[in-house]
Simulated assay, not measured.
Amino acid sequence: MTISISKLYCLNPTGFHRISCTVWSALHHARPLVCAHGFSRNGRDFDALASALSDTYQVYCPDAAGRGHSDWLEQREHYNYDQYLRDNATLLSHITAPLPDEPSRPSPSVDWVGTSMGGLVGMMLGAQPHNPIRRLVLNDIGAQISAASLNRIGEYVRETPTFETVADYQAHLADIHASFGPLDETQWQHLAHHSHRMEDGRVVPHYDPKIASAFDQPVEADVELWSLWSAIDIPTLVIRGGQSDLLASETLDRMVELKPDTQVLEIPDAGHAPALMRDHEIAAIRAFLSDPSLGPD
């Protein structure tokens, strides 16, 4: 298995910025899999999943603009879903381009695993005509998003706390993200290690504080995306944290009612959103992605 970091140039309204992407691969010409993270997180959240699936996939784990090692945008209002869609369309164009040594090889389809914001981006891309996504995994995101959960996320993102040590930051993560599930010490250490930076001798979260512009105003009503869900014609697995405040069980029930072939995995001991770091979570995703009954490879 090899791990590499790619930098892709993407275009925003004031110029170019670079998106950082961690790539995991053990096989040449393996099918591409994109793992897209949540709002304030980064691509290294998927290290456990990517490492496990790199035996059959070439796994791309991008950092969204303003997160991790990707560039920050100049204007706070440019942190929006239009930009995230453009950035990921650039990524999809890159990973599905014909190889120089095999220009006649058909462009591969792509599988997509998205947590929260990353799942919403996957839904938006998957609803587009002629998209290259073969199978879609939505981790605790769906066709209706509660206003209360969005305001909760906005509350902690707007704070931009600082810490004396990485251990202090790790304790903070384990508190605000306890809903990721019962992770062990090593797993929390991993998340803290890859999601902090140093600023003026203090430990701070590894994202641009301007991403909080999405929460400049309180969210007054649930966000409804039923027309988006109806437009998706891709085999889909929806993972729900059993204690989630963002994806209600009633919402998931209605999603399945509208699309009866939707597969569902509930993680009882997690909320928003399961970390996808534990063996049984990874096994369930592997089984869905490799299920021959869902259609041709």
Results as ranks from 00 to 15, higher is better:
residue 184 D to K: 07
residue 253 D to W: 08
residue 173 L to S: 04
residue 148 A to K: 12
residue 179 S to M: 14
residue 157 V to W: 10
residue 252 L to S: 01
residue 59 V to H: 02
residue 31 R to A: 11
residue 218 P to R: 05
residue 268 P to M: 08
residue 240 R to A: 12
residue 21 C to Q: 04
residue 34 V to I: 15
residue 22 T to I: 12
residue 170 Q to H: 11
residue 183 L to N: 07
residue 285 I to N: 15
residue 244 S to W: 13
residue 240 R to T: 12
residue 282 I to W: 03
residue 145 I to R: 06
residue 296 P to M: 09
residue 120 L to D: 01
residue 18 R to C: 11
residue 16 F to G: 03
residue 6 S to L: 15
residue 263 Q to H: 12
residue 181 G to P: 10
residue 219 V to A: 02
residue 83 Q to D: 01
residue 21 C to H: 08
residue 42 N to R: 01
residue 125 L to N: 00
residue 182 P to C: 14
residue 277 M to E: 06
residue 59 V to E: 00
residue 13 P to S: 15
residue 73 L to H: 11
residue 15 G to D: 03
residue 203 V to T: 04
residue 228 L to P: 02
residue 92 L to G: 05
residue 217 Q to D: 13
residue 212 A to V: 05
residue 114 G to S: 04
residue 79 Y to V: 04
residue 96 T to A: 04
residue 178 A to R: 06
residue 86 R to V: 01
residue 235 P to R: 06
residue 42 N to D: 06
residue 51 S to P: 03
residue 40 S to L: 04
residue 186 T to Y: 14
residue 217 Q to Y: 09
residue 67 R to K: 03
residue 188 W to V: 12
residue 195 S to M: 11
residue 294 L to P: 05
residue 292 P to S: 09
residue 287 A to N: 11
residue 123 M to A: 02
residue 219 V to K: 11
residue 150 L to K: 05
residue 104 S to C: 08
residue 40 S to E: 02
residue 192 A to M: 11
residue 250 E to F: 09
residue 189 Q to M: 13
residue 200 D to L: 14
residue 36 A to L: 14
residue 132 P to C: 15
residue 132 P to W: 03
residue 166 V to K: 12
residue 204 V to M: 07
residue 84 Y to I: 05
residue 50 A to S: 15
residue 70 S to V: 01
residue 117 M to V: 03
